[in-house]
């Protein structure tokens, strides 16, 4: 989570040296965060499903 939050913050800060040259960081970030949320939920379901099988 710490790594992820640092990644998000670095992408949001316009003055960030690494991401400043990247024109479409908002587009990339929207794509990444969409999949993070969706796959996070999928992983939670998977864990619940495995627990229910026992």
């Amino acid at each position: 989570m710490t790594t992820l939050s640092m990644f998000v913050m670095s992408m949001l800060q316009d003055e960030s040296a690494y991401w400043a040259g990247m024109k479409h960081r908002h587009l990339v970030l929207a794509f990444v965060l969409t999949w993070v949320v969706q796959l996070g939920y999928a992983a939670w379901i998977w864990r619940r499903w495995r627990r229910a099988r026992r």
Partner: peptide
């Protein structure tokens, strides 16, 4: 749950689109 997850993604994407 699924609707709430989609709603969360909408609320994430919206501001990222709005800012630029």
């Amino acid at each position: 749950e699924m609707g709430t997850v989609f709603c969360a993604t909408v609320l994430v994407q919206g501001p990222l689109w709005a800012r630029p």
